[in-house]
Design a protein around this nucleic acid. Structure first.
Lengths: 216, 216
DNA sequence: GCAGAATGTTGTCAATGACAACTTTGGAGG
DNA sequence: CCTCCAAAGTTGTCATTGACAACATTCTGC
C-alpha cells in the first residue's frame, strides 16, 4: 500500500459525485468521503481548500460535460436550425437526468454564488451557444421580432424548470420512466416546434388558421 | 422577563426567514437562531423536531402565502382568461423576488423531499389553479390541441426557471432593478401573450402571416 | 542522491444538531 | 385558592463535521 494515493483528487471527485447522485449535496461530508476511500480525514484538504472548493470543481467539470453533451446532441440532430435548437433543449434536460450529481452541483445556489472565473466562463459559453442557435432559428422564421437575449433566457429558464420539476419527488403528475422521452420532447416542443417553421410570433395578430395537427 | 417566551414559535419562523433572505438556507443554524433571539440553544426543539421541521413549516406557510399572492394578482387582472393566466405567471415570479426566504424554502430540494401532507396538498392546489386557468385560456383559443397537464407543467417549469435565474448571481445579462417589471412581463408573455388570443399552436402548419406588430 | 515541493497523517478546536434530564410556568379542575 | 400536570425553557453532554496546524513520507527536478 502506497503512502501516496496517486489519484486521490479524481477519486474524491468521482466518489463525491456518486454520493450526491444517491443522497444529495447536503449529505456530502468530506470526512465520510475520506473514510469511504480509506484515507485520513484531512487528506481531501490537499486537493480542495474546503467543501465549497470541491463542489466548485465538480460544477466546473459538470459544466464542461454538459456543453459537450448538448453540442453533440445538436450536431447529431442535423443542420435544420429549428431541429437543432430543439435538440439543444432536449439534451439539456436529458443531461440533468443522466448526470444528476453534476447537474445538482451546477445549479446549486451556493455553488453558483461562489463561482470562480472558469465556472463563469463555462456558463457564459452555454449562453452563447444558445444565442447562436436562437439567431439561426430566428433566421428560419422563429420569433423574428423577439430579442435574442430574451429568447435565450426564456429557453434556458424553461429547460432548467423542467429539469428541476423532474428532480422533484413532490411533483405530482410527472411522467413515468418509459414516458420520459415523449415528455421531454413535448416540453421542449412547446418552446420551439421543429415541425412548425412558421410558428407565429406571440403578439402577432395572426388570422384564423386550421388546427389540423393532432397530438399522437 | 418571563421564563416562557410566549410566541417563540412565530419569532423563530420570522427570524429564520430573515436569515434565509439575507444569507441563504445553508447559513441557517438553530443555535445561532436561538442566540439571536436570546433563548437557550435547545429551546427551538420544543417547537420544531429538528432543522428540517422548521424549514418544512416555513415552506408550508410560504406556499400558502404564494397561493394567496398569485390568486390576488389573477383576480386583480380581470376576467379575460389569457390576461389572467399571464398575471398568474407574473405574480409567481414576483413572489420569488419579494419573499425570497419563503420561495427558497419552497423550492429547496431537501425540503421538497421530506414534504408532509400539508405541503403536498398546497403544491397540488397550485397545480389545480394553473390547470383551471389553462383550461379557460384554451377555451379562449390558446393552444387548444395541447394536453392541459403538459401546459401546466410547462408553464410552471418556465416561471420556476425564470425565478431561479433571477436569483442566480452568476447569471450574466440579467435585468437591472428598474427593468424587472418589463423583464418579467416579456418572459411570461413568451408563455402566453394576452394580446394574441389567436396565438398559433406549435405544431400547426399555419399559413403565411403578416408580422406587423413590433416590440415597443 | 538530495533538497524541496506535494501529498498524506495525526491531533486539535469550535460549531452544530440532537438528545436527556431537570426546572419553571401557567392553567384546568377540584 | 390550591394542586397537579403538561407545555415551554434550561443546562449538560455527545458525536459529527469542517477547518487548521504540525509533523511524516514520497516524488521529482536538478
Amino acid at each position: 500500500m502506497t503512502y501516496h494515493h496517486g489519484n486521490l483528487r479524481k477519486v474524491l471527485l468521482d466518489r463525491a459525485a456518486a454520493v450526491i447522485a444517491e443522497q444529495g449535496i447536503e449529505a456530502l461530508s468530506l470526512r465520510a468521503l475520506a473514510r469511504d476511500i480509506g484515507v485520513s480525514h484531512a487528506a481531501p484538504a490537499r486537493h480542495f481548500r474546503d467543501k465549497a472548493d470541491l463542489l466548485r470543481a465538480l460544477a466546473t467539470e459538470g459544466n464542461h460535460r454538459l456543453l459537450d453533451y448538448v453540442l453533440a446532441a445538436a450536431d447529431a440532430a442535423g443542420t435544420d436550425p429549428l431541429v437543432r435548437y430543439n435538440a439543444l433543449g432536449q439534451a439539456y434536460v436529458r443531461f440533468s437526468l443522466e448526470f444528476p450529481a453534476y447537474y445538482r452541483t451546477i445549479t446549486h445556489p451556493e455553488v453558483a454564488a461562489h463561482a470562480d472565473t472558469d465556472l463563469r466562463q463555462s456558463r457564459q459559453r452555454w449562453h452563447e451557444i444558445v444565442a447562436d442557435a436562437a439567431r439561426e432559428a430566428q433566421a428560419a422564421g422563429w420569433l423574428p421580432d423577439e430579442d435574442v437575449e430574451d429568447i435565450v433566457i426564456y429557453s434556458t429558464a424553461t429547460v432548467r424548470g423542467v429539469a428541476a420539476m423532474l428532480a422533484d419527488p413532490t411533483q405530482s403528475s410527472m411522467p413515468k420512466r418509459q414516458d420520459l422521452d415523449s415528455f421531454i420532447e413535448r416540453m421542449v416542443r412547446l418552446i420551439i416546434d421543429p415541425e412548425a417553421p412558421q410558428k407565429s410570433l406571440p403578439g402577432n395578430k395572426a388570422p384564423k388558421r386550421n388546427p389540423e395537427r393532432k397530438r399522437k
